[in-house]
Design a protein around this nucleic acid. Structure first.
Lengths: 163, 163
DNA sequence: CACACGACTTTCAAAATGCAACCAGCTCCG
DNA sequence: CGGAGCTGGTTGCATTTTGAAAGTCGTGTG
């Protein structure tokens, strides 16, 4: 990773981005979550340089988002399969996809449509409130300091203002 | 932005990441969405170098995620306020925060807790299926080719495999 | 046997990042 | 009134990362 670490911001977003915030990392995770799990496949589909891909994969394995698994000997080949931690990035990827669909989709429409495997229908996943169950609209979310907040953060007021 | 563009992948995730996939961009958007909207505030809270911050802000304004607004003359100061396009990144930021909370939270607990302003309660936003309304569990999402998919993508099979 | 994978590693130039210093306009303080 | 300090940057230069191409090494194939 580049020089300036995101550590010591006491922020889960910064913490998350310190693992997956680098230019290629989420694109690699996209591939892995979509089922492209071999070095050459990921390289082809992303266009990443092989040295960078090797670095990123090693990093992702080190941090427990992926596991490197021997796929077959003889033509010795490996698969990078997502761990639970890696799979849990799905909501991030889906959110990015929906944002991309909304603002950068090709004229023809979105290239991929999510399908809910449980009910079998097209799903346009939406965030719902765990308390009232309603869809959470655009600006209808604030944050309040949690148990891990520092005094400084509380003092500075980490609360969002509406646009 | 760095060299290799993410264009021509015909992928909304790649398209999204080509705007916000750079190391600092989502961290800047976090700040703006949390209400830190002035140059010096963002610089302080992220620790980013000022030349980089100036570049990124200009880029974000150019691509319509932020607007630069005169906040007061005389001490001439500006605010970077999110546009609709910028606000719509909220689900991405929230998803990152939840992932960070789950895997990198400080011992004390999460630093921030989301609150649903409509019902007034703590919200742990979850993705729900727009068709059946159920929570979408970990691996319960596939994708199918949409109208914008290329023949090549369809041929290659963009469907995910379960872990 | 020549050539082609697959999964990398190595080499080296080019580009992005980070740091520090600087600048200009204003304003607050003694 | 002089100086320190804030705001919102810009400029220059060294460091680090990236990217492109080429090489490696162990198969496997016609």
């Amino acid at each position: 990773m580049p020089y300036r670490p995101f550590t010591d911001q006491n922020c889960s977003i910064a913490a998350a981005l310190s693992l997956v915030g680098e230019r290629w990392t989420l694109l690699i995770m996209r591939d892995v979550l979509l089922g492209r799990r071999r070095f050459a496949d990921i390289k082809r589909s992303t266009g990443i340089a092989s040295n960078i891909l090797a670095d990123r994969l090693e990093m992702l394995v080190e941090h427990g988002l992926l596991k490197r698994k021997l796929y077959s000997d003889h033509p010795e080949s490996y698969e990078y399969i997502p761990t639970h931690k890696g799979l849990d990035l799905n909501p991030v990827i889906i959110a990015l996809m929906q944002w991309g669909d909304q603002y950068s989709a090709p004229q023809a429409g979105p290239p991929r449509i999510p399908v809910h495997t449980v009910c079998g229908h097209d799903a346009h996943p939406r965030m719902h409130c765990s308390h009232c169950g309603e869809v959470i609209e655009n600006g209808a979310l604030n944050v309040r300091p949690g148990p891990g907040a520092t005094q400084k953060q509380i003092y500075e007021g980490v609360l969002p203002k509406r646009a």
